[in-house]
């Protein structure tokens, strides 16, 4: 004989699964995945699969979600190379530029990680060696004007597309650079 409440409890499983697939933010989706794991463990245990429920709780809720958060955190990131010391007159402009850039990347759930380099040469080298996804520096040509013009060079095409459409900050130029794929150097 099957009790009535079992039907209601089993119906919670597709409900939480639908909530899970409707999420767009990866971190929110992972928290919902943990909720789905808790409900799945309940369903498995009332249907008599105590061992399956225990495995779902240990692996599905704890291990998989924890590992996925670490994986998403380390892969969903935009590394931007900057010079470690900006001249004082442009400091305000630069912090505002970075804040604006952060707003754009957050819309796509990317983290913006700033990597500092001591001089221009090392910055260029880092971009060519694929240590960073893009670099942001003051362009040399506009030193005469009062207006500081920053030059942002991106080597990942998708990031370039996103920034080109979303990033509208005055006096900043965004350009795309193709770096020839070198030998099997994969950092």
């Amino acid at each position: 004989m099957i009790d009535n409440y079992i039907y209601v409890i089993v119906a919670l499983l597709p409900l939480s699964a639908l909530i899970l697939v409707s999420q767009t933010n990866p971190y929110n989706a992972l928290v919902i995945r943990a909720i789905l794991g808790a409900i799945a463990a309940l369903v498995y245990s009332i249907l008599g699969g105590a061992d399956v429920a225990l495995t779902e709780a240990l692996v599905g809720t704890m291990l998989a979600v924890t590992l996925y958060v670490i994986a998403v955190r380390s892969s969903l990131v935009m590394r931007l190379g900057i010079l470690s010391k900006n001249s004082d007159s442009t400091e305000d402009y630069f912090t505002e530029l970075i804040a604006n850039l952060r707003k754009v990347t957050q819309k796509y759930y990317l983290r913006l990680e700033l990597v500092e380099y001591p001089d221009r040469e090392l910055l260029k080298q880092a971009l060519l060696k694929r240590e960073v996804h893009g670099i942001c520096e003051r362009s040399e040509l506009s030193n005469m004007d009062n207006n500081p013009i920053y030059q942002t060079t991106i080597r990942v095409h998708r990031l370039f597309e996103i920034l080109q459409t979303e990033f509208t900050f005055p006096d900043t130029e965004i350009s795309y650079i193709t770096i020839p794929s070198s030998e099997d150097k994969h950092k």
Binding site: A57, T61, T66
Partner: peptide
């Protein structure tokens, strides 16, 4: 599962 849920 109660204790594993809290740990997770």
């Amino acid at each position: 599962i109660l204790s594993v849920g809290e740990a997770g």
